[in-house]
Design a protein around this nucleic acid. Sequence first.
DNA 1: AGCCGTTTTTGACTTTTATCAAAAGTCATA
DNA 2: TATGACTTTTGATAAAAGTCAAAAACGGCT
Lengths: 195, 195
Amino acid sequence: MLQEDYLEDYQNLFSVFNAIHPLSEELKSAIIKNSHIAKVDKKTTLLSAGENSNTIYFIVSGGARVYYLDKDGKQTNTWFLFENELLISVYGFFTGQPSFEYIETLEDTTLIVVKREKLDELYLKFMEFNYIGRKLTEYYYIRNEVQANELRMLSAKERYEQLFKRNPQLFQRVSLGHIASYLGISQETLSRIRK
Amino acid sequence: MLQEDYLEDYQNLFSVFNAIHPLSEELKSAIIKNSHIAKVDKKTTLLSAGENSNTIYFIVSGGARVYYLDKDGKQTNTWFLFENELLISVYGFFTGQPSFEYIETLEDTTLIVVKREKLDELYLKFMEFNYIGRKLTEYYYIRNEVQANELRMLSAKERYEQLFKRNPQLFQRVSLGHIASYLGISQETLSRIRK
DNA sequence: AGCCGTTTTTGACTTTTATCAAAAGTCATA
DNA sequence: TATGACTTTTGATAAAAGTCAAAAACGGCT
């Protein structure tokens, strides 16, 4: 693939960042230099429990889910992420502890891949990049908080209705089984709620 | 109260920050200049639902809880925070939206008070302060995530045991009723679990 | 169109936790 | 030490959601 195509893949990343804080050309090329593009098939596992999570992804196209296995070995989805969103196992990536989560693509997906040590170099070399990192962390924190609060505050039915109202496209891209586990309910209960 | 006493109140804040990234003297005095100390009684409401949350607190001594009212008007605690921890309503403070949460002190409490616009000035003037802000945001994000995951993954009993193991001192400082709501269970159920 | 594998729905039953009401315990203080 | 306010426990019942098993529906492919 030609270099120009790769550059194109970075445009959305840069515009997400630039909307938060202006990016110098120097920082842009440092980002390109410290990352690479990966194209992976649907159902590719990007991270498994027990591994060290030392990679952050920006989804250029496609989508992925983050899930863990509960004590009976059942998968529970905690996140669905799609194009122009960042993809990590938050706990593993931020703490450096082995991950308890898995990351798996839901579709054929193009990713910008940044290793943690490269990211840390960028943070140390370009202090203004921390402004962007801080804002993005706040943004995903809020999303996490909203989701956690909904799990607390709302009944199964209300959670379903809320998700359906806020994110109806999700139902086009993700199976009801996955959505049920994301909502913290059994597939059977979701099926009954939908009637 | 003498200026020296105030300075003393900042020492723990500075050492928390300094452990993340070295603080210049200039940044330290800017922090002091952009904040003030407040001493408030037990059961003081620092934020109410519907208000704009434009203040971040560092708890010098004492403690506070963050809670919301569910649709039946029942209080549900989402956080307990004590000395050397930051205190905000995350959603309200980060989004600028009116808060759905309340903040109330649990004890007589001494706080370092920073208004959001002052904090934003610090972030723009001292880019390295974003490094600290980013790391702290990551830290509280993780705590939130761990708590949210426990609510998802564990039964009422397991959540209680986990909390008791990790944070037994909490039970000295906070009533069982408050802890029950934090754990997402009724007080009666908590009482039964404890036997 | 027909087949296979996967996803979704349905029914019967069980488990977990909530709710309501009342009793008992704790603690500060008059 | 008796009082009143608040917190915690206990008992009985109810509601919400889970589990298991089987049937039905759907989607891709030949």
